[in-house]
């Protein structure tokens, strides 16, 4: 089997499992909706126009939602001893990582495709559709960063005594640069028309994200076999 076929086999397994149970997507969706309801209470006086804080709030919701999904994606592998099955199968371990990153990326993106329009209707009063392309690029690049490092850390976290409790502690400080970039890009685009200074910030943030994604895809991909061990 070629590498792509192997990745597809694991990815298909994850998607089929999710389509049958729907537990991950539904809980992630409920979580993101509940976060928005809390935003409404937190900013009760200005709840109809959170344009200024849009980027930060959006990524606050997505970061915690992604943690939920990342943990889930390994908890069921561990509980049913599926991870052992995966490791015993004649597949390069780095490819398991690649497939897991892809599946986490897909689930996170599905939630975002549903949540971003709802978030915009709820809180954003500025029509940012002319810049939608750039906005989507920013979101995709941020997702890649979160999924790549998140998948790597979730593999370790799930094999420790503290299990899923450990992931946020390890992951949140590591994704700070990516989050900074994500908030800068989304915030600038959602926050209204922007001048030269903000455009420079956005382009810097995009460059940082691209480098971040490359580093945190390549290094964990290279280290995955070592981390799994045995």
């Amino acid at each position: 089997m070629s590498s792509l076929k192997q990745i597809w086999a694991i990815l298909k397994k994850d998607i089929v499992l999710e389509l049958r149970t729907k537990e991950m997507l539904i809980s992630m969706f409920l979580f993101v909706m509940l976060t928005m309801i809390i935003f409404n209470y937190s900013f009760s006086a200005e709840r109809n126009d959170l344009t200024k804080f849009g980027g930060g709030l959006l990524w606050l919701a997505f970061t915690f939602t992604s943690l939920l999904g990342l943990n889930r994606s390994f908890v069921h592998e561990k509980d049913e001893d599926c991870m052992d099955g995966l490791l015993l199968s004649p597949i390069d371990r780095s490819l398991i990582y690649a497939a897991k990153v892809l599946s986490n990326l897909i689930f996170l993106s599905i939630i975002e495709i549903i949540a971003i329009p709802i978030f915009s209707v709820f809180f954003i009063k500025y029509d940012y559709t002319p810049k939608l392309g750039l906005f989507i690029i920013g979101v995709i690049l941020s997702n890649i960063g979160i999924a790549s490092i998140g998948t790597f850390l979730a593999t370790m976290a799930i094999n420790t005594k503290t299990r899923d409790l450990l992931l946020p502690i390890l992951m949140l400080p590591l994704i700070v640069p990516a989050l900074w970039a994500a908030v800068t890009i989304s915030g600038a685009i959602m926050g209204g028309p922007y001048g030269h200074n903000i455009a420079v910030d956005v382009s810097n943030a995009l460059k940082l994200l691209v480098f971040y994604d490359i580093v945190f895809l390549v290094v964990p991909y290279g280290l995955y076999d070592f981390v799994i061990g045995e």
Binding site: I149, F152, L153, M156, T160, L170, P173, L174, V176, P177, A178, W180, A181, D201, N204, A205, L208, F211, Y212, V215, F216, V219, P220, L223, F226, V227, G229
Partner: peptide, 24 residues
């Protein structure tokens, strides 16, 4: 030792990125 080595490696890279993002 294995997990610490992996985390020690990626952490240093994250430190570099954090420093870059603050310099910008």
């Amino acid at each position: 030792a294995r997990y610490s080595a992996a985390l020690g490696t990626v952490s240093y890279m994250a430190v570099i990125f954090t420093m870059i993002s603050t310099r910008i």
